[in-house]
Design a protein around this nucleic acid. Structure first.
Lengths: 252, 252
DNA sequence: CTTGACCTTGTCGCAGCGTCAACGTCTTCA
DNA sequence: TGAAGACGTTGACGCTGCGACAAGGTCAAG
């Protein structure tokens, strides 16, 4: 048999056969005078075993180990391990599929912020009519970001806090007001008189559960906080700072 | 923010961030005087979106497409496609796990021929006591090979045919006799008088269903058949040839 | 002044082959 | 007899999503 015949009869490609030679899985056969490989039954038998093993999901390195150990005993070990591995993969797949399905089933489709948890997606759907406000859009982006950024265990709390701020029509109305006031500060100076009003309104929108510690004590060296303020216009940043200070006062 | 902070807050590695820059997923930020990248909130937001998308199982190329299309509409398409893809993967995983479990549960463990179908494994377990016979071992190898080699639809028929040959204690006894006769021919000449006996006994072991066509008309140019005969001692090969001829005669 | 924790660019490595490239060999058909 | 077409040969790059080096530069603290 030449390589194409061998490959054909076992159902793999010639490239794969040569690859197995290269890795030492399949012994190199004799060569004909013209350099062609001349295969025998032995090779077909081994190649078929390789194929069966790889179809089960073994890596080629594991296949080599199995083929090397004449004993069939080691194979059981490898397969048991493999089964555990596959179980993990299956679990991971199932989780992803579950998240996907939830995403696709949420009414309103997938929000523009990209895929977020179903809880957030529902809340965002409630503020869809505010998409004319740059601040509202930015806020949704930041919330979506926070959900990714906070440690796993905090997510539930975060979502429920956001639910307090955006969960009811009244809350959304209040938030819309705050967004509008902040939008209006886009080109203003930090000492603009409207800053105070915006800060108070904003403070009224932020649920106390959002910051479990004292909001006034947020680490002033935190690079992310800097980036956050830098991203806002100066007067807007000032309003946010003052709002947080108001919250810290209230908490005492 | 510097790169380490950004990566830390979003929960990826700095290496990944640079990789995303390289692929154009994440815009390169301004540089400080010392060459360090200086990130803002925008980058954190985008990076978090990238992470959410990759966690769902999207490839980076798809992530790029999604980020490029501002519309959230395309995302739904991509996700739907992805879901179908994941469904296929899950199916494949389930199948493999099922095969694995069957293999591990078959009594006698996994046969030395490597993983075969449960049907064959059971049959092989019945001939385990013949492992002293080189011919019996070889036969099992070849049968295992054939199961891999024949097209999908033929497997069932193959296994049931083998079941006729090795499925009952009486059948196994007859097969053992044929193996012994063939083993005895290992060093003999093709005109050895024992060849005839071996051929007749062997012919009695091969169920007529094994070759659905006429066995005598097997393609004589078939490279695999050559390899098969070449693998046997000359007298053994002669016995097999005669056995097949006997079967072809009977069939008329 | 040194240490240690950051940052920079660049390259190789991983799994399992697919896919050229550039060439030799063998058969077959006009 | 010559050319086409279907085989074979070795070798090298490509793909995915980064991890893990190398070989440095930068900066704050002890």
């Amino acid at each position: 048999m030449r390589i194409g015949e061998l490959a054909g009869v076992v159902g793999v490609t010639t490239r794969a056969v040569r690859h197995y030679h290269h890795l030492g899985l399949l012994p190199e056969p004799e060569r004909r005078a013209n350099g062609y490989r001349e295969y025998g039954l032995r090779h077909a038998v081994v190649l078929a075993r390789i194929r069966r093993l790889t179809e089960l999901g073994l890596g080629l390195a594991e296949v080599r180990d199995v083929l090397a150990d004449e004993a069939g005993k080691d194979l059981v070990e490898v397969l048991t391990e493999l089964d555990e591995d596959l179980a993990r993969q299956e679990e991971a797949l199932r989780e992803r599929r579950a998240r996907l399905r939830v995403l696709l089933e949420v009414e309103g489709g997938v929000p523009a912020e990209g895929p977020v948890s179903p809880g957030l997606a529902a809340l965002f759907a409630g503020t869809a009519h505010l998409s004319d406000s740059p601040m509202a859009v930015k806020d949704r982006e930041i919330i979506a970001f926070l959900e990714t950024a906070v440690p796993e265990g905090e997510r539930e709390r975060l979502v429920s806090s956001v639910g307090e701020a955006l969960g009811s029509p009244e809350a959304v109305a209040r938030a819309g007001e705050a967004y509008a006031l902040l939008d209006a500060l886009a080109g203003a100076e930090p000492d603009d008189p409207r800053v105070e009003d915006a800060a108070v309104t904003l403070a009224g929108c932020i649920p106390p559960t959002l910051f479990p510690g004292t909001a006034g004590e947020l680490d002033p060296d935190d690079g992310f906080l800097h980036a956050f303020y830098d991203d806002l216009a100066p007067a807007q940043a000032e309003a946010v700072r003052r709002a947080l200070r108001i919250l810290a006062e209230e908490r005492r």
